[in-house]
Amino acid sequence: MTMPPPPPQAYQAPPQQQGRGAPAGRYASPIPVRTPGLGDAIASEWTKIRSVRSTMWTLGVMIVLLLGIGLLVAFVVSLSDAPAEDVPVLTLGFFGVLLSSICVITLGVLTIASEYGTGMIRTTLTACPSRARMLIAKSVVFFLLAFTITTVTTGVVGVLQTAMLDGATPDTGLWVRSTVGIGLYVATLGLLSLAVGTIVRHSAGAITIMIAVVLLPLVLAIFMFSPSLASVQEALFEWSIPNQIGAIYDVSMTSSGPTGWEPLWALLGVTAVTMGAAFLALDRRDV
């Protein structure tokens, strides 16, 4: 860049040569040109997500909830007189995961909706006009971050819980599901929140919608006393998000419904469809 050093003193009026007698040559920048790609967009989104307070807050609170509730439950269970072998140790992580999923939902929504709130989205899309690239970069960065934090923390909680309680040794399948499986499920739930945030473009609105999605089916089902609604009630119980998380842990309110990895596939499907809608909205709408 050939511009002189800092302002305001620096920009002296140039000689009166601009205007109609202006230089014919176009400006050519000395900065080397390298065509940016998805990697650059991901680097950019990583800078964004690590440089705002809300990331630290939501993830910090999430880790505290997972550890705190996980250890508290294990402690309470260790005080009881029930025979130790009957305690499915890893499933005790369920309570912390349910609460901490709210944190991931918040972060997922904020990842995009805060850009609309602050006006940053205009700058972002001016710098990266490809809506697909921007959305993919945001999703990748958010998903990897949420997945890593959740998996590592649930892993630590699981180890501590099994150390505190000498119950039945969990099998490998449950170990994988209660760490990697939960990590994938919670991060996907966050991704769904990101997609909803993209469509709604308003932080509070999108967070409210997502909390309703998590809690409302279960709450509604509880109050469906009418026998004619029994089948609806059962479906709501089975596919409510708390029950899906429970199913990953092998603890379910219902005898039927999703088991094992099934909740993850279901949520992935819903998220993929919502993300498609989010992309279309982003692509078509004025910013």
Partner: peptide, 25 residues
């Protein structure tokens, strides 16, 4: 466009850094 096209919670440096990165500057 207007002065309010940045994230207020981010430092000036980081606001510009994420833009630079997205264009491999």
């Amino acid at each position: 466009l207007d002065a309010k096209s940045m994230h207020g919670g981010r430092s000036a440096y980081n606001n510009l850094l994420c833009l630079a990165q997205s264009n491999s500057i």
